[in-house]
Nucleic acid binder design. Structure first.
Lengths: 215, 215, 215, 215
DNA sequence: TATGAATGAGGTTTCATTCAT
DNA sequence: CATGAATGAAACCTCATTCAT
């Protein structure tokens, strides 16, 4: 899987000083983008936040798009979430719950970044591709897990694992977006959210479970 | 429910000619927005498409935002989808399937408009509010339907109807967006999509069903 | 001969007002270019001189290059000079003298423009092409005239008319450039210049003559 | 004759290393200027070509202009051409032909440099002065030679030697520019060029000759 | 002497919006 | 009501030059 669809300028070997400046620009970009949104962010806001001059920006990046790509690259690990198969355990429902909990927590932690990614993906096709690639990773992991459960006779064999995974993965990401990125959080209790998603996930696949709400 | 959160300029009574001009502007806006996207659309593109002059635009609208709002208003009926309770019948699964089919078909028909709405909602909070309002209508209708099924003993009573509806409604809209708005349609068979969504919907609520794929 | 090598933006049919504004911009461009040179001229200098705003510039032109092309087009008739064959008369030497006199006078009148053309031609290949095209017109006319004199037995038949014309036409334009465009005019008496050029021209082609200096 | 009109930075005594670095910068400047033109050449292109850092440039030069002056100084001998009086011989026409041949060959060898000089002279008055000084050397030598021929009764005594030299010297440099610097060379045969120029030169001064084309 | 990151003035360019006709 | 030229704020971007190491 080649995540380099969104190009970043030829990264010449950097001196430590250059490394630092570049880093401060990416950090500043995160602050400014999260605060003002992608469109409203001006390059001068970013350099001001980074404490350097406009010209310096162009030492490391050629455009707003490119520094955004760099920011996405720099933060890609922050949304790492285990996926079903990375949670150990014998009880499928417990595994699913743990996985969903991890996902929701990661989403909540990175809500602003996710919000931002959504804004940019809907503006620039290059980043829609990136978003889809990352989503696909998540979807495929879950599809694999569903297929395993089917093989072990623990999940409805009628469903296409990939399609079911798309539906369920989409369900959780959408709800997380609504709950955390849009800041409608007041309407949602985290545990209620988790319970509902996990119930539907398990029921949807016809997985036996004894889930209950936590408060 | 007040849908007027997104203001439209004081609609002075229009002469028939004015009515026509305004209409051609909205129609042109749809063409241009769907073709170029909201951000890349220039007002002069719209007036050119409408066959009128730049100045005329301001007779009817005060900004790009406002004509977009007018376009949303003009097309709001195009995504009208029945919601569960609007489909008659005794078999809940059949009702759900019919409802989902109607939703997917409407989404497919209006894919470009939905894509556009997503773009703008992620740019402009006013339109995020509008999008959420419309989603809420859909969610609430489905929640009502779920509550009904619970009362009739046909659906899992443990689930909060509103939360379950958010999850399931989000699931279907997300999948429709991916399938139709992003043009990844090749990866999806419509009937497979429908079957998967409806199965998970019914299973998720523990509704008895005998669904089968159509080809 | 297609002189449209240097493109000018699609000239939409202009309203009289637009015609006037465009004209004032071209006139302003001439003032500013002649005063400051092509490179040092800023678009804002031109719009300021034309009495309009920066934005207006872009209603008519897309770049400095383009307005320069328009200026060249607008002034192309100012350097029209008869060429040998357009001067009537039986005495070839008198004809050549009259032609040279007309050329030098036109050059002197348009010295700043010629200076400008030279600057730009040496910067931008598109305008070198234009300069060469215009020179070629002059060269070809003179070549024709030389061929005629050869046929009438009045000029050295050994010389290739085209090559001889290139040499003699180049001689006069170079001297005119030095005398008038560079402002070394003090070193040159117009009549001395004319006498020398015409003598060499006639002698060079072995045309009989009784030229004498005027003072 | 003071050729130092175009200043060069105070040339501090250089270490051998410094000498080498400076030399590589001038050599790089020639490559880059000839390749990209004066205006499009960036100092970083030159330092990159020279294999040193940006900062090093300022150890030896203070500006693009100055390194260009240094390049002109370094290459001034490359266009050395004998001038009429430096060719030995009794037959004036043969001397003129040899001189012209030497000039044309030197021009052809240094065509890019001459092209460059022309570009810069038309941009920067300081270099126009330099160009004129060098031309003047050539013109004056030729004027001296013409005066000698007049004194020996071999050339038309009516012509002012200086003015005639300006005309004839300009003729040859213009034609050389067109033929070699602009790369229109295909249209010109070297020998035809030489024959025409020399014929007109001799005829123009009424010098007896028996010139013939070589092939 | 060499390095190369940092600087920032000053130009270009866009396009939503105004307004005289 | 319609016109479309004029407006100008606001952003972008370059690259010669400086300077701390």
């Amino acid at each position: 899987m080649n995540e380099k669809t969104v190009e970043e300028g030829p990264r010449k070997p950097l001196t430590p000083r250059g490394e630092r400046t570049r880093g401060s620009l990416v950090a500043a970009a995160r602050v400014v983008f999260e605060r003002d949104g992608y469109l409203d962010a001006r390059l001068t806001d970013i350099t001001a936040e980074a404490g350097c001059s406009t010209g310096t920006f162009y030492t490391y990046f050629t455009s707003k798009e490119e520094i955004f790509a760099a920011l996405m690259e720099a933060t890609k690990n922050e949304m790492l979430h285990p996926g079903l198969d990375h949670v150990e355990g014998d009880d499928p429902a417990a595994v699913i719950e743990a996985s969903n909990r991890a996902y929701l927590e990661a989403y909540r932690r990175n809500a602003k970044l996710m919000r931002l990614m959504e804004e940019v993906a809907n503006i620039d096709p290059k980043f829609m591709v990136l978003r889809q690639q990352r989503a696909r990773t998540f979807v495929e992991r879950n599809a694999q897990s569903i297929a395993d459960l089917q093989q072990r006779g623990l999940a409805d064999p009628e469903l296409d694992p990939m399609m079911a995974s798309r539906a369920l993965s989409g369900m959780i990401s959408r709800l997380a977006f609504g709950a955390f990125a849009l800041g409608d959080e007041k309407e949602y209790s985290f545990e209620e959210l988790l319970y509902t998603l996990t119930s539907i996930w398990c029921n949807g696949l016809r997985i036996d479970h004894q889930l209950s709400r936590k408060d």
